[in-house]
Amino acid sequence: MRKCKFCGKETGIFLREHRLALCETCYPSWIEKQVSKTIKKFNMIKPDDKVLVAVSGGKDSLSLIQVLKRLGYNVSALYIDLKIKHAEYSSVSREKVVNFCNKTGIELYIVDLEDEGLESIDRISKIYRKTCSACGAIKRYYMNKICLEKGFNVIATGHNMDDEVTTLFGNLIQWDKDYLKRQYPVMPQNNLLAKKIKPFVFISERQSAMYAIVNGIDYIREECPYSKTATSISYKEVLSMLEYKHPGILRFFLNNFFGSKNEETKLENVTYCKTCGAPSYLEVCKVCKIKEKLNQK
């Protein structure tokens, strides 16, 4: 059995990409240090910032909020109840988030799709073939709304390194120059949109799950029923095989991509939605379009 690099204790935790063995006691501190480095490198959070962390009940978002809290940042949680009935997905994830916040004493805001006139993702999936895209638009809309309404400066999401590499891979496959231009760990604030950050951008999905498990974080292990057929899953399978054969290659790929950008991400053409006044790249924002379609049916 390998021995922890820091304390010499026997351990089964070995990070091939870093050629590093760590015990269950030293591992969480190591992750927290890595996240702290990322936050500093990209100027993500200032000491007096109020950070709203979007939590889903999954490993990444719950681990992220725990890391940020341990690093001493002022954090609150936002949970968006998507009302997914299949396998009681939303009720289980909501329970996990509520329990986690009660246990850690973290302030929690909840947005309920039913209360917002959007019914449920189950209903929206019958209208929109690209359910994940509609769901993403709804989540971004309420993250920004709650952030600005409640006086937060920053929104943090639990996107991990594998998510980012998969997005980058997808954008390259489609040669989507606009998305490639925008993809960055920080989206700066302007008067319409709150600052958005991804502090887990160099934490792999596996590292994030390990952090949750060694810290006893009770997260939802079931996959969202709508993401099971997502293209991103098949991209991730291919990329995972590449990472297995060449440990560290995904980090290298992502790091060099971000390094190739010589200026901060710019938000262009953001305007106000004519219906609800929220920031939007379109005349009428996607959430208002979804509401309109729901009312027509």
């Binding site: 994940c132 993403g136 999905e205 994030s208 991103s232 399978e237």
Partner: peptide
Amino acid sequence: ILKNGKIVEENERITHLDNIEIVKVVSGG
């Protein structure tokens, strides 16, 4: 891979007395 609740490497030896759980970490969306 969790062997009796502890994270282990893939070359870990196992017996019928061990409780083995494989936890999927890939999520999509």
